[in-house]
Design a protein around this nucleic acid. Structure first.
Lengths: 213, 213
DNA sequence: CACTTATTTGGAATTAATCTAAATAACAAA
DNA sequence: TTTGTTATTTAGATTAATTCCAAATAAGTG
């Protein structure tokens, strides 16, 4: 009971990378490289002809490939999934290609084992991100959390009020919720806004949400 | 040239989970379960005795384990890495345990292959997050695009007003910005709130931010 | 105790927002 | 063209929300 091998198109401007990947997959009966491409138009042709399970893609050279190629390919071959193997590990790039519709992202430092696992996962429609990429993604979030802690000169009561306010409750509603006079809430809010350097309740909401409160 | 097996302590309040994991690792010569624990104090004892490479941990039952256990263990045995296998896949929980110092996170839906890969990666000090967890982490960024499209019954003018409002501007400021009467802004806002089903300008801001406008 | 900080509140004045009602423009359908 | 729909704009009267000013209370610290 042998399953069909995973068909792969390699889209990378660098010859040595293509060679290396082909060599790597030769030892893998589950993975079958059906074509490769050095530019966007070649990629489109290859996808139209083979409708591969996975495209291994590097957007690093804008003269050869663009990030938009990902969504373009997905339009003409929706079942095709993308595995990015790129040395471009900038945060923006990672989010960008994931938004364009690629599932997986490895950097060029990743080893054979990781690449093969990634191709298999990607062909099944699963995400696969290597450690370095996960670090970059988490960085953003974990760093954000800490920022949350930093500007908390706020007292416990003030924090309560920020949280409720950031849920869209009016001062009156917040007062009801906490069994306080609306005036109390106004005073707290005034102090909070002073501490956080914002000028209106609306800005306070924006601030609170953007800082994860 | 055989490498030393990876020593694992299982910390989970549920007997069946512990049994299942032990059974799973029995077929793996590279992984050796040295002890298990049902509560924090048992975990500390086990770690002191064995100083394991990996602790498989579920913080789901606060009466048995707490998230702080992770950093506590790391203090007495710094080389020990944590793999969380928990059904608690809330975003906050995931970030929390990662901040506490655990490297990896699987949900209880993950299969054998994924668990074993995760144990091996974790023992080497690498991160391993399963698809579901990555989805949760990415959700904020990637889901943005799709949610943005859905609730746009809004006219272009209405969208302009939502955007400015969601930046914390008052109706008057928005009116100035767009060279309109404040009344116009109020009317638009009323219509927008009706369309989106929210009851106040504050809720509108919350809604707008959470839907990426 | 004196001092600071957090918390609470009210009355008066001000500002923002809602309700009601309607005019104008654009645009497609009859 | 006329009719109807939708988007856009606005004002007056009314109501609700907020700010300003001033201060009382409670808790904790030196």
């Amino acid at each position: 009971m042998k399953t069909k091998p995973i068909s792969v198109v390699i889209a990378d401007s660098q010859y040595l990378i293509r060679l290396g990947l082909r060599h790597l997959f030769e030892g893998q009966s589950r993975i079958n490289v059906v074509d490769d491409a050095t530019r966007s138009d070649e990629l489109m042709e290859a996808v139209l002809e083979h409708s591969p399970d996975v495209v291994i893609f590097d957007h690093d050279k804008p003269s050869h490939f663009k990030m938009e190629d990902i969504s373009a390919v997905k339009r003409i071959s929706p079942h095709t999934n993308f595995l990015i193997i790129s040395s471009d590990d900038k945060k923006e790039s990672i989010f960008r290609v994931l938004q364009e519709g690629s599932l997986s992202f490895l950097t060029k430092e990743c080893d054979e084992e990781e690449i093969i696992s990634a191709v298999i996962a990607t062909s099944k429609g699963e995400k696969f991100l290597c450690n370095k990429v996960i670090d970059v993604i988490l960085d953003k979030h974990v760093a954000k959390e800490e920022q949350t802690c930093a500007p908390t000169n706020l007292t416990t009561r003030e924090l309560e009020i920020v949280k409720l306010t950031a849920q869209g409750l009016s001062a009156g509603k917040v007062a009801d919720q906490l069994y306080l006079s609306p005036h109390t809430v106004y005073t707290h809010r005034k102090n909070i806004m002073k501490k956080l350097g914002v000028n209106s309740a609306s800005e306070l909401i924006v601030y609170a949400i953007n800082n994860g409160l």
